[in-house]
Design a protein around this nucleic acid. Structure first.
Lengths: 226, 226
DNA sequence: TGAATTGTGATTGTATGCAATTCTACAATT
DNA sequence: AATTGTAGAATTGCATACAATCACAATTCA
């Protein structure tokens, strides 16, 4: 109406948080990198107040560590922590599948199947990065269909943390990928058959195994500390 | 600023967060109460900056809702949300029991038994408030023995939210309390017998049922909105 | 020479001021 | 009487200034 684009309705600190979050998630900012307030302020052309507020959000999400009087750093990832995150994701995603299966519509179901098909495409064309990203979307979409706010929020936070670990590590080798794909295939069949408890079990085991894979991969590649 | 007592080592905003958190948890500040910045600043004798930072922390914990340009309020509790929180607590506490049983020492075990005995004392003397508080401690202590940081943190946050709902509602009636006590008794026996999966199952069902009780109680008492 | 110490620069923590937004009350219009 | 418009007050959002703290190097003394 007045400015070049529409008036910016959401607060600066949340935009800043989003920016920094993305940079951390994608590995542009790496664990233990210092987050100098002054440097970031100049770059983002904001003052320190909204930046510091954003840090608080990100700290709560586990992406940033604030050390009193010593400044903020990108939260370090310990292999143990990543493993622990998967410990929680397993039962939560199992719960998510249970809920989703009682609540999702026919279109929701076909959306999940479509994502699975897309993942198969990437798999067959040997696109590991594509597989990796579609897998993330597959799980998040399924959780969304559970229509459960608390689960959604909690899962999002944990999922982000696990994804950070996965971004840092190399992609799965062929064998691990085969196993993950097989689990997804099983899961899709089980969902189509409306076998709720079986689906939940498959998901639980799949996430647990993925966690082990990620931990192993991280340990081998040596990018994260113990 | 004058420092009447010893130098305070931890930042103002975290002290402020702790103060406000307690007031909200204990119901001194009730859902939808406005948290006026100036009023709180004057009362706590601080400036607005640390208070606003504290609000960010509390928002992430789900205790405060910040409405842009309209100020912060104590987060409202919906009965649905409380129910959802218990949906997550059930599998997480089950996981906690599993881990705790593989990791806790003999002293840890007797600490749990002692808490259970204390709860029986309160139960038999008809002290519902005592039962209520001891129950909270019982569950938190058990989770602590799991020695699992991510679980600890996630559980703490969810547990706080559930506890808020329970503070608001009247205490359980005799029948509900009987059932909860029976579950605890079963659990203790199962733990003593080192039956891990059975204990996890008991805990899962116990937390689920407690959730239903809390939701029912809240609905009947009419203190929280749907 | 080396350990302790103190000074200095850089950085974070807190307070405060100004701008932007929202709320309230009251008047004008239909 | 109900609704809309508008001015002013109150409150939040952001920027900036100042105070407290930390890291590290230069200096002192054993």
């Amino acid at each position: 109406m007045n400015k070049t684009s529409a008036i910016n309705r959401n607060p600066l600190h949340s935009q800043v948080a989003a920016t920094v979050r993305d940079r951390i998630m994608q590995g542009e900012l790496r664990p233990a990198d210092r987050l100098s307030e002054i440097a970031l302020c100049e770059e983002l052309e904001i003052s320190r107040t909204p930046l510091r507020e954003a840090f608080k959000l990100l700290e709560a999400e586990g992406l940033v560590t604030i050390r009193p009087h010593k400044g903020a750093i990108v939260a370090e990832i310990s292999i143990q922590e990543i493993g622990e995150v998967f410990d929680l994701l397993a039962p939560l995603e199992a719960l998510g599948v249970r809920l989703a299966m009682t609540r999702m519509s026919a279109e929701d179901k076909s959306r999940i199947v479509a994502l699975h098909d897309q993942m198969i495409q990437f798999y067959e064309s040997g696109d590991r990065e594509g597989c990796f990203l579609t897998d993330y979307e597959f799980h998040n979409t399924l959780i969304g269909f559970a229509q459960h706010d608390v689960l959604q929020t909690t899962h999002q936070s944990l999922s982000n943390r696990s994804q950070r670990g996965r971004y840092l590590a190399p992609r799965f080798d062929q064998q691990k990928l085969d196993i993950a794909m097989a689990a997804h295939r099983e899961l899709i069949v089980s969902i189509k058959d409306d076998e709720i408890e079986k689906s939940a079990q498959i998901m639980h085991d799949h996430v647990t195994l993925t966690g082990k894979f990620v931990v192993d991969t991280l340990r081998d590649s040596g990018v994260a500390r113990d």
